[in-house]
Design a protein around this nucleic acid. Structure first.
Lengths: 233, 233
DNA sequence: CGTTTTCTTTTGTATGATGAATGACTCTAT
DNA sequence: ATAGAGTCATTCATCATACAAAAGAAAACG
């Protein structure tokens, strides 16, 4: 329980991050009660103000519930804002819960093919252009880092092309959470652009507004991705 | 900008609710800056502590960003935690943005058939039992209110049966947001259980673990739902 | 005119005091 | 001994105040 003191920025933000990470860790099961404010202040070496604001932020994310006399307790996970970037980050950062990765991949398998189908039907010229540009960046990638960045941009562009802000937000969160889980596993370089072919197929289908093809190729792409890191299905 | 003082509970929670509703309203576009803390205190008649904690909570939901000297400004909507129950509630509560309803329905159209398919494959005995019970409650419903409650429970049971906590959380949020939008539209009673047949079909498909049938019937069910309130597609 | 310095506004952090809620305890009466 | 009522202590909630730090704006300076 120490402040990560990095650049997160403000103090209460650092406290929130520390506590968030702590709460998401397996040692703090649901229903566990946090130390009282005074003790948290001592342990973290900050004022009650900072601790309090951090607790308010975590409460806003559904992770905590504070009551007088009873103390501040961890709420059951099903009530957390699981699709909050911070919450998902804390869950992913530590012990790579194998189950979480599987569940995320299932979500992606649901969302992205549907998004590709929608994008094929709904995209505007500008959105298509952005997608083509992202694909070009993938083709041009020479390092693993470049490829990861371009890959994220590609998938994000497809989401954008659906025109559905909910889908854009959600897909982006799921994808980046998965990305953060995968980079830990340090996949091999060298053949990193094997999937380029299928990315091109999806793009082509979207270009000709073929919703079904876009969906099918996206499914194939994801299946390939799963196969590439050990099929935890 | 007045406190709803009702039940929300704690003061900062009420302030958060007031500000959240305000920020979500169309008059506060992205980039707009809030009045400074002192003025907010005056207007709301509370101490700086309460205002600050409310702002911290809203920042945690991605809606605000506070900086010294610059003030506290509203972040662009795409950075909000759209799948937070509060945020979605604030968006739904006011001017029933027609677009939001459409986007939510699209999400539901993506999630629920996939959930039905998964549920057919993954459900346990206990989960199936809960689903059967929920269906029985729908059959027994005699008032519109009873039926809405039972319907929500039915769909929630299907989500539970997928065993995917992410899907459970997400589907639940989307469904309840839609429900809150629909109840405003006060759909007709009388024929409220026309959809019972299809609910039964989905259940039957899940019972015999037929993933494809479950998915197809769920699609039909949702199409019927859309048709019933004016097909905003 | 461009650069640097100073200033001023706004949020960030700390501290102390008081209020309110509520579980735990005690004390009584039966 | 037990049930109930009343008291108490602990913890969070709220308020008020003071000072620090950041960052744009304005002024001073070369």
């Amino acid at each position: 329980m120490s402040l990560s003191s990095q650049p997160g920025s403000s103090l209460h933000h650092q406290v929130m991050d520390s506590l968030g990470r702590l709460i998401a860790s397996p040692e703090y099961g649901p229903g566990a009660t946090l130390p009282n404010e005074e003790e948290l202040c001592e342990r973290l070496g900050v004022s009650r103000t900072a601790v309090r604001e951090a607790i308010k932020a975590l409460s806003a994310k559904g992770m905590l519930e504070a009551r007088p006399r009873t103390g501040t307790r961890v709420r059951p996970q099903e009530q957390w804002s699981l699709f909050d970037a911070d919450v998902l980050g804390w869950l992913c950062s530590q012990g790579v819960d194998q189950a979480l990765g599987r569940h995320l991949m299932v979500m992606r398998g649901i969302l992205e093919p549907a998004a590709a189908s929608l994008a094929a039907r709904m995209h505007t010229d500008a959105q298509l252009q952005a997608l083509q540009q992202a694909f070009a960046a993938m083709e041009a990638a020479t390092s693993i880092d470049e490829w990861v960045v371009a890959d994220l941009a590609y998938h994000q562009s497809i989401l954008q092309a659906t025109g559905n802000p909910l889908l854009i937000s959600l897909g982006g969160i799921v994808a980046s959470a998965l990305e953060s889980l995968l980079t830990v596993n340090a996949q091999q370089a060298g053949q990193f652009n094997d999937g380029l072919l299928m990315h091109g197929k999806v793009l082509a289908a979207i270009e000709r507004r073929s919703a079904d093809d876009a969906q099918l190729w996206m499914r194939a792409l994801l299946a390939d991705t799963i196969a590439r890191w050990g099929a935890p299905a």
